[in-house]
Computed example of a mutant assay.
Amino acid sequence: MTVRDRAAALAGARPAGRFFEGAEERRVPLSGGGEIFCRIMGAGPPLLLLHGYPQTSAMWHAVAPELARDFRVICADLRGYGASHKPAGGGDHAAYSKRAMAGDMVEVMQALGHERFAVLSHDRGARVAHRLAADHPARVRALAILDIAPTREMYREARTPFAHAYWHWYWLTLPAPFPEEMIAQDPDRFWLWKCDTPPAGLAPFCREALEEYLSAFATPEAIHASCEDYRAAATIDIAHDDAETGRIGTPLLVLWGADGAIEAHFDCLALWRERATTVEGQAIPGGHYLAEECPERVLAEVGPFLKLHAED
């Protein structure tokens, strides 16, 4: 069985449902060059959805249509991912700092007519969302985060069992082009190694999303950008964290998988309370990819929180 055959088998059991049916697709130009790809659906208070690694905005396919009943939902591909621009990394990795990536989202939302908005985010996108709330507190009404603890504190608290489980956190930060060249030998296989680990009884990725993930990840530019994302997290992002003098005041909801690495290795709420003044949340049944593994439970938790904070 080829890697693509295995991918098809992985996706075969999960129907896509309404895979962004009726969504508008837009490319929003940025003042510094490049553009951000967005899927937009619904009407109401604005809600920005930010995906994780190594995915795209397609990860919200089971969540966005339901949220679009109450919100104007903007699902963006982060810079370096999906159909968004992929600038070259630099010596200090600043092009992929979460500050730069958050700045993209401010421009996108302003271009779409939204000065203030709520954010639902996962994984790397949640790290961008954290920086967005820290750097632009007047912009973010509320922030919901899926399956991460804050970057600096995770590195600080990590022990050997976490490093074994998440060795890619360290390996991807090695100097270019070593990780890039290794991944490029078989990007499909690397992607599936990273992601093909749902807890028992949970459905895998749907076919449409998986095909988008594999296609988007297969280019040298995308592989390099994703490595730069991790290099930035281990260097310039921590420098930005260390320069802060206070905690974010944005209301924060944190959900993490009861069967995942966050539950196993970190006190998630305690770490977030070091970084934010108003934090609530809990573990929910699932692994890392909660929006695809258990979308109904995610919606049940984030929906009331986002509605509560949707308006000033």
Results as ranks from 00 to 15, higher is better:
A126L: 08
G201L: 03
D188N: 12
Y166M: 15
L253K: 13
P177K: 04
C195P: 00
R14T: 15
E180K: 05
W167M: 09
P54M: 02
P65E: 13
I248W: 01
A258L: 13
D92I: 00
E107V: 01
A100D: 00
D242C: 12
D92H: 00
C268T: 11
R131D: 08
A16Y: 11
I148P: 02
V3W: 08
P137D: 07
F162C: 11
I36G: 01
R14I: 05
L252G: 10
A83I: 04
P46W: 05
I236W: 01
L174Q: 15
T219N: 09
G12Y: 01
R14S: 11
E212M: 06
M41L: 14
A8S: 06
E263G: 05
T173I: 12
L48K: 14
L192C: 09
Q185Y: 12
S121V: 05
R6D: 10
D147E: 08
Y166Q: 12
E244T: 15
R127E: 07
F19V: 10
A239D: 14
I248Q: 09
A234I: 03
V140K: 04
H240K: 01
M154E: 03
E208V: 07
G22Q: 02
F217W: 00
I284K: 05
M41I: 12
M1H: 13
V279K: 08
E107K: 08
D259E: 15
A200I: 02
